[in-house]
Design a binder for these strands. Structure first.
Length: 491
RNA sequence: GGUCGGGUGGCCGAGUGGUAGGCGAAGGUUUGCAACACCUUUUACAAUGGUUCGAAUCCAUUCCCGACCUCCA
């Protein structure tokens, strides 16, 4: 039983063995982006963390339904229940329809995720597509007595709820502490208590995004969409709910309260939260104005970036830290990641050239075991990577003839590397550039390098070096091997 | 102020009682030279005290940093 997947549950603050609600199936819901701006490194961290989980669960033969929402309404700019909708604000500033803003940034997000090789979730529901479900949820909460209407808006009655239910359990706080530290805000006369949050909000006259309801023309509160959509697609109880740590309070705490008020029980069995990306020790975030967008990373177009970093470098960089640790961004760290990744991928190429021997002098079974143990330990990718680098040493030693591997072990090693590097970690070799080269192009480069080989054989170093140096200038990487050469196009 | 989490070598980053790993640097092997690869080396656990055969890891005190408490992945 020791080698089972364990995940850290924010609710219990412990690692727990993952046992799904329904044997053989796993349901996961993750808070996706609010689409009012370009995706940045933080979005990538969350997406990659849960993509890894999604891939691993599938690898463990679970039938996984992965729901990641898109928030396209209800997220207000400032204080929780006042202020402009984020998307409407962007629309006003850019003179666009709110849905144009939504579409634009969904496109940006999808494109970036695609580059990062983040798999599409099973379902990507949008809040605006689930207004009816959200209205139904409001009805349920009112019926259970934990919400009240006030001037066309409906608020969740936190104090009443907290009398019989633990509010603050997930984020580890007490209602009295929250009360004492809550700021006095303008326009909160509608609420019974400053802790109450809106689940339906009456639209002000200038508000564009609005839907009819029996309380008012308005829009749903931010926290509600996740309760409505997760229960719709995963059921009133489901396995895993993920998101960034900064969503723990108030968003997830509110979700928990809503679910319990609406359904009479908790919905989520395992809460998982990924930590933040930091920049000079400070959280990278839109509101702090220190976020670097993913596009900027891919093109190098940001003053803080010394160069462009490929999507795979970013993906690998994320995997070098555990998902619950903060990860500090720096050019140095990214360049180290770039080189580490190249070394790993090179070894996986080398693996294809290795020939099996009678006997093995290496222990591939143990390597395999170590890799899985690391993954089962709350997705400990940095440790799994460390073991894979032991594998890299192993591969290079075999290729050098210093160690030998049997046919069975070689197959095992190949399988391990393929599964971990490509299937689970989702890393890819340079964007299939090789396949985009035409046969004629490849033939021409091969011809040049064969000429160089001839020159070398004739000890005509001038010609040999000229060919190599000119090709290097054009962006090729040239390597001499034992019995010839290899080349590839740098990206 | 409240709650929670941290402080590890030049950089990043694992690690809850007994050699992570990557990147960098130095030296060497290989090579016509180079790249790749390989071998060796290097510097560490914020401070102080304590527990222990043995502590980065446990306890105490101190200092420093961050996250959340408003919207944020």
């Amino acid at each position: 039983m020791e080698n089972q997947l364990q995940i850290y549950n924010t609710l219990s603050r412990k690692k727990e063995v993952f046992t799904p609600l329904h044997p053989g199936k796993a349901g996961m819901y993750v808070c996706g982006p609010t689409v009012y701006g370009k995706p940045h490194l933080g979005h990538a961290r969350s997406a990659i963390t849960f993509d890894l989980l999604f891939r691993y669960l599938k690898h463990l033969d679970y039938k996984v339904r992965y729901v990641r929402n898109i928030t396209d309404v209800g997220h207000l700019v400032n204080d929780a229940d006042e202020g402009e909708d984020k998307i409407e604000q962007r629309a006003r500033l850019d003179e666009l329809e709110p849905m144009e803003v939504v579409q634009l940034y969904i496109n940006h997000y999808e494109k970036a995720m695609d580059k990062l090789n983040v798999l599409s979730p099973s379902i990507e529901p949008r809040a605006t597509g689930h207004i009816l479900e959200q209205i139904e949820a409001v009805e349920k909460i009112i019926a259970s007595g934990f919400a009240y209407e006030s001037n066309g808006s409906v608020y969740f009655d936190v104090e009443k709820y907290a009398r019989n239910h633990p509010y603050g359990r997930l984020s580890g706080r007490k209602t009295e502490d929250m009360l004492s530290s809550t700021r006095e805000l303008e326009g909160q006369q509608e609420k019974h208590s400053p802790l109450d949050f809106a689940i339906w909000k009456k639209a002000s006259p200038g508000h564009i995004m609005r839907w009819p309801s029996r309380w008012s023309e308005g829009f749903p509160g931010w926290h509600l969409e996740c309760t409505a959509m997760s229960s719709k697609y995963l059921g009133e109880t489901f396995d895993i709910h993920g998101g960034g740590m900064d969503l723990t309070f108030p968003h997830h705490e509110a979700e928990m309260a809503q679910s319990r008020a609406a359904f009479g029980h908790d919905s989520v069995r395992y809460w998982m939260h990924n930590n933040m990306i930091t920049l000079n020790g400070q959280k990278m975030g839109k509101s702090l104005g220190n976020a670097i967008s993913l596009d900027e990373f891919f093109t190098g177009g940001h003053p803080l970036l010394e160069k462009a970093y490929s999507p795979m470098t970013i993906r690998y960089f994320m995997l070098t830290a555990h998902y619950r640790s903060t990860l500090d961004f720096s050019n140095e760290a990214l360049q180290a990641a770039e080189k580490g990744l190249a070394r790993l991928l090179k070894a996986s190429d080398t693996l294809d050239l290795i020939r099996a021997s009678e006997k093995s002098t290496v222990d591939t079974a143990r390597l395999r075991e170590c890799c899985y143990t690391a993954m089962n330990d709350d997705l400990n990718t940095p440790v799994a990577l460390a073991h894979l680098f032991d594998g890299v040493k192993m591969i290079n030693a075999i290729a050098d003839g210093k160690e030998t591997v049997s046919a069975g072990d070689l197959a095992d090693l190949k399988n391990l590397f393929t599964v971990f590097i490509f299937h689970l970690f989702g890393l890819q070799k340079h964007e299939e550039e090789a396949s985009s080269c035409s046969a004629a192009f490849e033939g021409a480069v091969d011809l040049l390098l064969r000429l160089r080989m001839n020159a070398k054989a004739a000890k005509d170093w001038g010609t040999a070096d000229m060919i190599r140096n000119e090709l290097l200038k054009l962006g090729f990487e040239i390597k001499d091997t034992k019995d010839g050469f290899s080349w590839e196009l740098r990206d």
